[in-house]
């Protein structure tokens, strides 16, 4: 009897410990969100989005150049990563089980695990060193590499969810494989694929390390593809490690914008995914 009491006690303690683990993980989440909002909200106004950084000692100013820079960098990355990622995903799902599909899945998971700083070094060697010039293109290239495996894997997963009956239906009507894929299978999975792209965008928009020595940074407004360009994340980093309070405030405001963007994307993706699941029954 006593032994059983002990067993039940251990069991209850274990359940309690698991619940505690959940709370423990939510504390930093709440704290990060709380501080980002509290510290950032004060400096966040219209000027933050429309004006340029001010020199040290002058309060105010904004991150207009960095916001445009981040948009451009993610745009370049998407142009590169969406075709490669989606097509790779199509190969992995359409020819699942072939050695190339298995190799691709492994490559995608491997690439996904490569540290972002290493991607930065690689992009430096490929896209900066030969031209002796930091550039927006090099930064977009680095981010694109990070985006490819995410898009490839979500595309693969969602295409595999499309019932095989639809594929067979199209083939039985005399569709070629390509026709079946692009007119029936991909459209059926499209909402999910777009969701995956949005999540990938959210992830790379927050990347700093691959940009440090590819797109570098730029104090001025630039839209040139072959020039260094500012980005929200690198700008936050520069401000955060500086000794000036004005810049710290700007860094927090930048972080708030970034977190707001990332969380909105995650939330939208989450809602979209839930709806897709429900439609599929």
């Amino acid at each position: 009897m006593n032994r059983d009491r002990l067993r039940r006690l251990i069991s209850s303690a274990f359940v309690g410990a698991c619940a505690l683990a959940v709370l423990l993980a939510l504390v930093p989440l709440a704290m990060v969100l709380f501080f980002v909002v509290r510290q950032g909200i004060g400096s966040l106004n219209l000027a933050f989005f429309t004006s340029m950084p001010r020199p040290v000692g002058e309060a105010g100013g904004g991150m207009a150049n960095a916001i445009v820079g981040t948009l451009m960098l993610t745009g370049i990355a998407s142009l590169m990563a969406v075709p490669v990622g989606v097509m790779s995903g199509i190969y992995m799902s359409e020819y699942a089980g072939t050695w190339l599909a298995i190799a691709l899945r492994f490559a995608a998971d491997t690439l996904n695990g490569v540290p972002s700083i290493v991607i930065g070094v690689f992009a430096y060697g490929i896209a900066v060193l030969p031209f002796k010039q930091f550039s927006a293109l090099a930064g977009g290239f680095a981010l694109g590499i990070m985006m490819i495996p995410i898009i490839a894997r979500t595309t693969e997963e969602l295409l595999l969810l499309v019932p095989n009956a639809l594929r067979e239906g199209a083939l039985a009507l005399g569709a070629t494989r390509a026709r079946a894929v692009f007119t029936v299978i991909v459209p059926a999975a499209l909402p999910g694929i777009i969701t995956g792209i949005v999540l990938a965008l959210a992830r790379i928009a927050g990347e700093t390390a691959p940009l440090l020595f590819t797109s570098f940074n730029n104090r001025f407004f630039s839209r040139a593809l072959t020039q260094p360009i500012s980005s929200l994340t690198v700008q936050i980093y520069t401000y955060a490690i500086s000794p000036y309070d004005d810049w710290h405030r700007q860094a927090w405001a930048g972080a708030l914008v970034l977190v707001g963007f990332v969380l909105t994307c995650s939330l939208l993706a989450r809602i979209a995914t839930a709806r897709i699941r429900r439609l599929r029954g």
């Binding site: 490669v84 790779s88 190969y91 691709l104 070094v121 690689f122 060697g125 490929i126 070629t176 494989r177």
Partner: peptide, 29 residues
């Protein structure tokens, strides 16, 4: 289906080659 498979597979190979290229380029540099 072969041309389709080759084209889609070529995009896939870009993904696979990237991993190799990282290793090669980093060694070179």
């Amino acid at each position: 289906d072969l041309p389709f498979r080759i084209i889609v597979g070529a995009f896939g190979c870009v993904l696979a080659l990237l991993v190799l290229a990282i290793g090669v380029e980093l060694t070179r540099q």
